[in-house]
């Protein structure tokens, strides 16, 4: 009873400021401010539980995989393609690591390379259907996603532990009380930022995504750019699978799918900040941590775990709505 009583008064001011909140999200650092405000609120409401180095470390470390998937997806979405197969590709790569290393005992580094290559192949297959056979990306990757889920179960339908110890160590050790994967994902974000912001290829991706005909008439090889974007998306998703294997120390066939929606939420929420109205790398990174802060905080306050789905789904809807508005204004 007490829990319900304390929750009700909090909910009311939040909904009253809802409109302002949406407006603030549209501005450049609005999301970061809201994030900070949220973190502060949870620190006060859950004293000694939210702002602990353990909890902070968990927050930063656990989301590294999502950051990497979001980076992959960002390439596809910037180029104007919907890649619904990122979660399934992650799952495939994760399960490959479990089967080949955990069960069959193959050399882990060979397995890592194979898993990422498998991802790249998925990307090429997506590109074949989307670019050459002219299937809308939404349909092509939806089909691919289901197909890959089947393949994944075919490879292994059980949870596998006992992965290479060095490999697992690289995923579980901490530096400054934050798990190492956080640093890996920062490097990958940095590389994505470099490609999207500082190379002609990045420029071409944006042009192909926002005006394919303009890009074609400007002499950009549109088909190649779209293919590379889809391959990057799938390969990075596979890399995220490897990272997940290393930080869990185990693999399972059903984990991949859970990453699809959060990745979309992060990419589109990210387009409301840093460079509002434009899909961008640091916006997506901020968005990933914004989302997990909200979820972790709410769960510490006693929310059930289903809050996660409500939060991710709701934010995806709100983020796309806000970024469409931001685009309309400029």
């Amino acid at each position: 009873m007490t829990a319900t009583d304390t929750k009700t008064p909090d909910a009311a001011p939040e909904s009253r400021t809802g409109a302002h909140l949406l407006q603030a999200l549209g501005s450049k650092y609005g999301l970061i401010l809201v994030w900070a405000a949220m973190a502060l609120t949870f620190t006060i409401l859950a004293p000694g539980r939210f702002l602990t180095s353990q909890n902070m470390g968990n927050i930063f470390g656990s989301q590294a995989v999502l950051v990497v998937v979001a980076m992959g997806l960002l390439f596809a979405v910037v180029a104007g393609e919907w890649d619904l197969s990122v979660g399934a590709t992650l799952g495939l790569s994760l399960t490959l690591v479990g089967k080949l290393n955990g069960v069959l005992g193959w050399n882990i580094w060979l397995v890592v390379v194979l898993a990422v290559l498998a991802g790249a192949l998925v990307g090429l297959a997506n590109a074949f259907f989307i670019v050459i056979a002219d299937v809308p990306s939404l349909i092509a990757t939806l089909g691919m996603s289901t197909l890959l889920a089947g393949v994944t179960y075919g490879i292994s339908n059980v949870t596998v532990a006992g992965l290479d110890e060095t490999f697992v160590g690289l995923g579980q050790h901490r530096f400054l009380s934050i798990p190492l994967p956080f640093y890996y994902c920062l490097l990958i974000a940095l590389a994505s930022w470099y490609v999207l912001r500082w190379t002609p290829f990045g420029r071409h991706l944006y042009f192909v995504g926002s005006g394919r005909e303009v890009a074609r008439l400007s002499g950009i090889r549109v088909g190649r750019v779209r293919t590379l974007a889809l391959v990057a998306s799938a390969a990075l998703s596979a890399l995220a699978g490897v990272l997940l294997a290393s930080s869990l120390g185990a693999t399972g066939p059903s984990i991949g799918a859970t990453y699809l929606l959060p990745a979309f939420a992060a990419v589109f929420l990210g387009a409301t900040t840093i460079a509002p109205g434009h899909l961008n790398v640091w916006g997506a990174v901020v968005a990933v941590y914004f989302l997990i802060t909200g979820i972790t905080g709410l769960q510490l306050l006693g929310a059930e775990s289903y809050i996660q789905q409500i939060f991710y789904g709701g934010i995806l809807l709100a983020a796309v709505a806000v970024s469409r508005q931001a685009k309309g204004r400029t």
């Binding site: 944006y206 042009f207 926002s210």
Partner: peptide, 13 residues
């Protein structure tokens, strides 16, 4: 609007 410019991208790009 359809073939020569990308309206939401900057003049510079």
């Amino acid at each position: 609007a359809q073939r020569a410019i990308i309206p939401e991208q900057s003049v510079q790009t």
